[in-house]
């Protein structure tokens, strides 16, 4: 029995490691080659950047030519603030939708998830006019508002699905204890939805962080430029200088990694918290 278990455990690790290689190899290739000379990149793409083939020239041009810390700060601000708004406002709305019966509740529920079905990108022109009339062009606020609106439907969809499956008993007993509806939301419902917060966060975060379109249209200004836009512009300047292109790609990967490490613990804690509760 024990032997059998050991074998199956080795088997599991073999599969997982194989997939890890598949997931990591392309990334490693980019980082590896970003430290090489142009000739070496093409002659021996899988070779290590040693001796003659080593060159950090790409990083030189990337780091001296652009304002990456500023872009990173912008991306972080936009992503975190939007995420907080999506999670909080989404949870509030879903709670109301799943908990209370009121006239038009079904309609409102459908209305709020309608946005999943059409990319907001279609409304670009009207959106831009709106943002300009509010005096928000070239601000991070514009991006935050759009991303929040864009992220809400899916958040509400997932939260509502989940909250409907949660039993009402806990909330009702809280009500008997005399808690106000607001306290029930913050003290009972929020802890309840923790397992899906991770899911919603993941779904909302990636498209925001990686979006190229709205930064390009709503806030292309230097002061409010995001990392993704910065990298994209940067690639455009070096069509043939692949050392610089690969370096800027590597630099673009780094902040996402940092971001994920920051969130990862929270996310997993959310997931496992649910497991313990269940």
């Amino acid at each position: 029995m024990l032997v059998k278990q050991r074998i199956s455990s080795v088997g599991i690790h073999a599969v997982l490691i194989a997939y890890s290689v598949l997931a990591l190899f392309p990334l490693a290739l980019i980082v590896l080659n970003s430290f090489k000379t142009r000739k070496a990149i093409f002659r021996d793409p899988t070779g290590l950047p040693l001796g003659e083939s080593f060159s950090a020239k790409g990083y030189d041009s990337v780091l001296s030519n652009s304002d990456f810390p500023l872009y990173f700060g912008n991306s972080l601000t936009v992503t975190v603030v939007s995420l907080v708004l999506i999670l909080l406002l989404g949870a509030m709305a879903s709670h109301a939708l799943s908990e209370y019966r009121f006239p038009g509740d079904t309609f409102l529920g459908l209305y709020l998830v309608l946005g999943i079905m059409v990319p907001i990108r279609l409304g670009t022109v009207a959106l831009l006019e709106l943002i300009v009339s509010m005096g928000l062009a070239n601000t991070l606020t514009a991006l935050i508002l759009v991303y929040t609106a864009q992220g809400l439907p899916i958040a509400i969809f997932i939260f509502t699905e989940f909250l409907r499956s949660v039993s009402k008993e806990i909330k009702d007993s809280a009500r008997i204890d005399g808690l106000s509806e607001y306290r029930i939301f913050f003290e009972v419902v929020i802890p309840l939805v923790r397992p899906v917060i991770a899911t919603v966060a993941v779904f909302s975060m990636i498209p925001i962080w990686n979006d190229l379109w709205f930064p390009l249209i709503l806030s292309p200004g230097e002061e409010s430029r995001t990392v993704t836009l910065g990298v994209q512009q940067f690639i455009g300047q070096y069509t043939v200088n692949w050392g610089a292109v690969l370096a800027s790609l590597s630099v673009a990967i780094l902040p996402v990694l940092v971001m994920y490490v920051i969130f990862s613990k929270q996310l997993i804690r959310g997931i496992t918290a649910g497991a313990v509760k269940g």
Binding site: V125, L128, E129, A137, N138, I217, P220, Q233
Partner: peptide, 21 residues
């Protein structure tokens, strides 16, 4: 000088023209 990469130029410019930015 504020360039947009060639592949996005037409679309992005037209949107910005329509929005007045």
């Amino acid at each position: 000088f504020k360039p947009t990469t060639a592949t996005e130029y037409n679309a992005a410019l037209n949107a910005r023209l329509a929005g007045g930015t």
